[in-house]
């Protein structure tokens, strides 16, 4: 039993070493294959990082969402203030600010940049405003809140400045779907690339395979080095993909930070997390094994002594 277990591990080790040796002996071909695999894996993974970053940014924006309630002109400031305090008790409402007509006019004067001209107006044209900060960011819930607030008789208009954020978030959802579709296609590409590499390796070692079969090599024994070759290509290719993405983020990091600071935000670009990086390595290894397994199974059957 012990001997069998030892033999089993010895044979796996031999297969692993022989597959690494074969890659090492043809460095140019191996590197080119690895690069193709790495690029195929880095493309969807990089796109994922991009979409993930965009989602994080827009989430920040969404949390800054607010509803502006314009109070009808015939409502007194005192009444409007009472309403604003009532709104504060609504579920999902965090902070509520009340701007009287005068306060709104004063704010507009300072922001507009031409206060003298506004002084010439005979009357204050602005309504009183209640600004509602919700505690959630979900577009559906926001719309529900918008409806509730619209139903208050003293409120003339509710403005939810969310539409463009919603559109962006919908766009990002499309982006996420594209990442998945791209992932699927490029995973298939990786399987085919590795499969083709294995096919060539089998073709080059046809005589050897025939002789191994002749002297009693089991199919598992013959398959093993090729499976390890596939696994190694997948693993090294995905390591290379992680390096590529990390490198690209390093290059992009500084420009993005200065871009963010130009917009008075302090945004740090999100890289590939360790978990996602490990996922990528696992995926690459799995695809390598899969590509090798499919093609080895298909081609070994045809080689007989």
């Amino acid at each position: 039993m012990q001997r069998q277990v030892n033999t089993y591990f010895m044979q796996h080790l031999q297969a692993l070493i022989s597959s690494l040796g074969a890659m090492w002996r043809a460095p140019l071909a191996s590197i080119m294959t690895l690069l193709v695999i790495a690029i195929a894996l880095a493309l969807p993974a990089g796109l994922y990082v991009f979409v993930h970053n965009m989602q994080t940014i827009t989430q920040d924006w969404q949390s800054g969402a607010q509803l502006s309630l314009f109070v009808k002109d015939d409502v007194t400031d005192a009444r409007a203030k009472i309403i604003s305090q009532e709104i504060k008790t609504y579920p999902g409402v965090g902070d509520v600010q009340f701007l009287t007509r005068d306060a709104a006019f004063a704010e507009f004067k300072t922001l507009s940049g031409f206060p003298e001209m506004l002084d010439t107006l005979p009357d204050n044209p602005l309504p009183a405003v209640i600004i509602v900060h919700p505690t959630f960011t979900d577009p559906m819930l926001l719309q529900k809140l918008e409806k509730t607030l619209k139903a208050i008789p003293e409120v003339a208009l509710v403005q939810l400045d969310m539409e463009w954020v919603q559109r962006l978030s919908a766009l990002l959802q499309v982006g996420e779907k594209i990442v998945w579709i791209l992932m699927l296609f490029l995973c298939a590409a990786v399987v085919l690339i590795i499969g083709n590499t294995i096919r060539l390796a089998i073709f080059n070692r046809q005589d050897e395979i025939a002789i191994i079969k002749l002297v009693g090599g089991t199919n598992a024994f013959i398959r093993r080095p090729f499976l390890y070759t596939g696994i190694m290509y997948g693993l090294f290719g995905s390591i290379l993909a992680v390096i590529m993405i990390t490198g690209a983020l390093l290059v992009l990091g500084n420009p993005i930070e200065s871009l963010a600071s130009a917009y008075q935000t302090d945004y740090k670009i999100l890289g590939l997390s360790i978990g996602k990086g490990l996922d990528l390595l696992f995926l690459g290894t799995l695809l390598g094994w899969l590509g090798a397994a499919i093609f080895v199974h298909y081609h070994l059957k045809r080689i007989e002594p």
Binding site: R3, Q4, N6, T7, Y8, M10, Q11, Q14, I211, I212, V215, G216, G217, T218, F221
Partner: peptide
């Protein structure tokens, strides 16, 4: 050595 390697000898 090939047949022995295949058969898993030490």
């Amino acid at each position: 050595a090939l047949p022995l390697v295949i058969a898993g000898f030490s």
